[in-house]
Simulated assay, not measured.
Amino acid sequence: MISVNGSNGLAKKSVLVTGGGSGIGLGVATVLAAEGVHVTICGRNEQKLAKTAREIGEGNPAGSVDTVVADVTVEDDMIRAVAQAAERTGQLDGVVACAGGNETIAPVTQLDVEAWRRTVDLNITGTMLTIKHSARALVAAGGGSIVAISSIASSNTHRWFGAYGPSKAGVDHLVQLAADELGASNVRVNCIRPGLTRTDLVALITDGGPILEDYLANTPIARVGEVTDIAALAKFLLGPDSTWITGQIINVDGGQMLRRGPDFRSMLEPVYGADGLRGVVTP
């Protein structure tokens, strides 16, 4: 397990964060670096990663940030990313699998099959390859913690989101499977389900309008989440205060899982029409 070292239990540890160049991954990497962690962020854009590493490093001298250009859907890339993260201290202590996305915003009767495949590959296969190769390093080190990032779309239907919700539901089950298998080697595997969280990717929603109003109406703690909300739980799940927690899928969503998913009708009806949203396809 990640053992107590200093005041926070994470200082000087080595953690890999996939999708660390932006969004939730960036938030997680920033919080970990502030705790004195040696963070390795990976992503597909070398310039974005380098800029992110500089910004995090300048504000968090206690830790350090390294980068590795890697596509989580490419097995050789993930082998290399894990090896580089472990090289920092001689072993890998934790992983946060943040890389994910969606190319399939459309009614189910009009989904693009190749976009569906790419989304499933990114979210499920990418998370699987991250767990597969990081778990090998963690087992060899005597244990550690893996945290995957899912979505409230995996538990509450998000109409017209296509492959995103089903693929994130696959991540949830993958986490539970890995936790069941790896517990014997002292490796914990848990999952965070964020609700609507303020990132550049969803700025069109969080900047205001009927979709945001619908989100807030269906969220008991009616505000937009911040990346620090997600990062705080990731830090806990990586650290020494969670050593008997594994296989858990934890919502960080202000309670939205108690109600329903968002209504994107105002955005999509002008594109597909009211009939299109209920499955009608014009010949």
Rank of each mutant, 00 (worst) to 15 (best):
R80Y: 10
C42P: 04
A97I: 09
E87M: 08
G59K: 13
V65T: 08
A81N: 00
A50S: 13
E87T: 01
E55R: 09
V65M: 10
G43Q: 01
E46P: 12
T73C: 14
K48I: 10
Q84C: 01
N60T: 15
A34P: 02
E58Y: 09
V95H: 11
V68H: 14
Q91W: 11
D93L: 12
Q47H: 10
D66A: 15
T67M: 14
A62R: 05
D76H: 05
Q91H: 14
A85P: 03
T104S: 12
T52S: 15
E35V: 00
I79P: 02
E35W: 00
K48W: 03
T73A: 15
M78A: 04
A106H: 09
A70G: 13
G94K: 00
T40N: 04
H38F: 11
K51M: 08
G43M: 05
V68K: 03
V37R: 00
T104A: 13
A86F: 07
G94R: 00
A83C: 03
V72K: 00
N102Q: 06
E103I: 01
V65Y: 13
A83H: 06
V74D: 14
V65L: 11
K51C: 02
L49D: 06
E46D: 15
N102S: 13
A106N: 09
R80H: 13
C42M: 09
A33T: 07
G90Q: 01
L32C: 08
N45I: 02
I105Y: 15
A70V: 04
E75W: 04
D71W: 05
H38K: 06
G63W: 10
T89K: 08
T52L: 05
G59F: 09
E35F: 04
I41P: 06
E46G: 12
T30N: 12
G59Y: 08
L92R: 02
L49K: 01
A33F: 08
R44G: 13
E46S: 15
E55D: 15
Q47F: 07
V69C: 14
D71S: 15
I56D: 11
E75C: 04
G43K: 00
A29F: 13
A99K: 03
A81Y: 02
E58K: 13
T30K: 03
K51D: 12
E35S: 11
L32G: 06
M78S: 02
R54Q: 09
E87W: 04
T89G: 06
T89S: 12
M78K: 00
N45Y: 05
N45Q: 12
E55I: 08
A81T: 00
A99W: 08
M78D: 03
A99P: 11
C42H: 03
G59H: 14
A81S: 04
G57K: 01
A34N: 06
G101A: 09
E55C: 10
N60V: 11
V96S: 07
A99V: 06
E87Y: 07
V65C: 14
R88A: 10
Q91F: 10
E58M: 12
I56R: 01
D71T: 03
M78H: 01
I79H: 06
H38C: 06
E55W: 02
L32D: 04
G90R: 00
D71F: 08
T30F: 10
I79R: 13
T52R: 05
Q91N: 07
E35M: 09
R54C: 04
R80S: 14
A29L: 10
D76L: 12
E58P: 06
D77K: 00
Q47Y: 07
D77L: 07
